[in-house]
Design a protein around this nucleic acid. Structure first.
Lengths: 333, 333
DNA sequence: TTGAAAGCGTTACCAA
DNA sequence: TTGGTAACGCTTTCAA
């Protein structure tokens, strides 16, 4: 591989000059620039990005930590992020944290050891304290789907409470009064907020929240399955079910069908997230849109602006969910 | 950040010695090793991986090019790969090629410019010739889901023909005789092979392949939808539908339902790939399992063995599909 | 506008 | 078993 040294020799200029035309930075005369460019072409020169990183103290890489590489939620987020960075010549290094505090921490350390210029973190289990401490290090990072007051400006979040409210309101508007709710694990802030939104809507409609119609799941399909089974066995009847995410809604629909419940005639169901497979369920699942792709893009923009000093779109940290009404919610008879 | 130099000073040894204990390579006396380790600890020393890369001419990074970061297929593959590498201290840089020749090529060049030690490529549009030429460069790579005779030892593939055969046989065993087929784009080898397997099964059952019951889709959901619509309008009746992947099967099921066709009573459907959402369809989709996670892992193992000289599991390049019988295929009445 | 030279933080070779 | 020192391929002052 040709080096900058060979280019400079062939072009009859100094290293510094070659470096300048590469970064088309300083003032280089047209004539010189041409000579250098020609030499590069002739040698098929490609700058060594590692050497550039070492000399400039900038690796042009950003670390991305997600809970899972698979599953419907993170794909669109990664996609938005990769896109934004690649067009700017930055690359993204991925790691999975598996919603486990220790593995998340290992992931972060791994990414740091890779000399990333910045981090995008979708972490769930790691403590606020750890992140606050981390923010005192020199490595910049942005948080997706997590709000820590001390780090407010780098938290890109969804208004989960509003989402929960919209879901419940949609159900309530269809005349349902006996509504079951399967939540996410309540140690997670988003699960809490979605539930809070639900309660808010209930209050608005002068309905009481009924513990007997509540089940705490873990955001995974199977807990929707188990949750529904349990709720169904309770003496309380209900005509609608709100699930705090689409995966649990899918699990619930599966068991409902096994129990020979007609959907949506006998039971209206609504999910949350609007992952792509909600289009594949039958009936098509009504849900709340989580603009995760855009939020990923925004995280990338934040870093482009704050770390790489690029001009980007105006930064935004709070995103709004919207209702996606499909066919799984119908008016009560 | 502490450097190796400060460590050497604090420990009272040379740079070389510190480097040795880091790579716990050469013969270092216990006493010296201890001193150095203590010094590292005291300074909170972390090696600079960029400098290591430059000096050792090894970036410890491998590039991963997939068609899409989102969608159900690539997640499990990326997951298998990331896992295998991280446990070995390698990191993976991702890029998307979007099934477009030019973007795939740009992706490869981008990854090369990042000084990856090796590449894992899931490319569809780029030509064999390009890849053969690339193989003459010094950068090693392995191909997933693509077979090029000249590069046979680095092609990790599925026996797609067998898969197509299994799918059709499953349908045939249930007594169906009028079978429609929605294929992938036939410029893709996997689409061809799956179709060939279908024809093979047909022959075995002494049935003719009927052009009127064939539609060429593009592996995307909507082409399943459109394909079914068209097939259904043709005068030929059919009792079973084979789709060359699960996404198209989902699209087909959606329109079938719109047309008030009872599934699976009036129409049996089988897909291909066994992506996770096949569990969410109704009826649950029978399909052919594509062990993409394992194949990703194997690609990683190949690189670990051939590029990083690690001992791994025995290498395997050809994988076998298996039938996953669920509820979308029933015997003809 | 250009060049010389000192880094950047390691590894790896050659001596001792 | 250790140390000295030249790479690795660039960027970035500082001078000219």
């Amino acid at each position: 591989m040709a080096t900058i040294y060979e280019v400079s020799k062939l072009a009859g200029v100094s290293l510094a000059t070659v470096s300048r035309v590469m970064n088309n930075n300083a003032n280089v005369s047209d004539r010189t620039r041409q000579k250098v460019t020609a030499a590069m072409q002739e040698l098929g020169y490609r700058p060594n990005s590692i050497a550039q990183s070492l000399a400039s103290n900038c690796s042009n890489s950003v670390g991305l930590l997600v809970s899972e590489l698979q599953g419907p939620f993170y794909g669109p987020m990664m996609s938005g992020i990769e896109n934004a960075f690649r067009s700017q010549g930055k690359h993204v290094i991925i790691a999975a944290g598996h919603s486990d505090a220790q593995r998340e921490q290992q992931g972060i350390e791994f990414l740091i050891s890779r000399n990333c210029d910045a981090l995008i973190l979708h972490v769930e289990a790691i403590s606020d304290d750890y992140l606050i401490t981390l923010s005192k290090d020199k490595i910049p990072f942005v948080l997706i789907n997590r709000y820590i007051p001390e780090l407010a400006d780098r938290c890109i979040t969804l208004n989960n409470q509003l989402g929960g409210y919209l879901a419940s309101k949609h159900i309530l508007e269809h005349g349902h009064k006996n509504i079951a709710y399967i939540s996410g694990p309540l140690w997670k802030k988003d699960a809490q907020d979605r539930l809070a939104g639900h309660k808010q809507a209930l209050t608005e409609y002068q309905l009481d929240f009924d513990e007997a119609l509540f089940y705490q799941g873990n955001f995974m399909e199977d807990s929707g399955y188990q949750g529904f089974k349990q709720l169904y066995q309770s003496p309380k009847p209900f005509t609608a079910l709100i699930c705090a995410n689409d995966e649990m809604a899918t699990g619930a629909m599966a068991i409902a069908r096994e129990l020979a419940i007609q959907l949506p005639e006998q039971l209206s169901v609504i999910g949350f997230d609007n992952v792509f497979f909600t289009r594949h369920t039958y009936p098509k699942l009504s849900t709340i849109n989580y603009p995760i792709h855009d939020m990923g893009r925004m995280a990338a923009d934040w870093i482009l602006a704050n770390v790489y000093n690029k001009n980007t779109v105006p930064l935004q940290t709070l995103f709004e969910p919207t209702l996606v009404a499909r066919q799984s919610v119908i008016a009560i008879k």
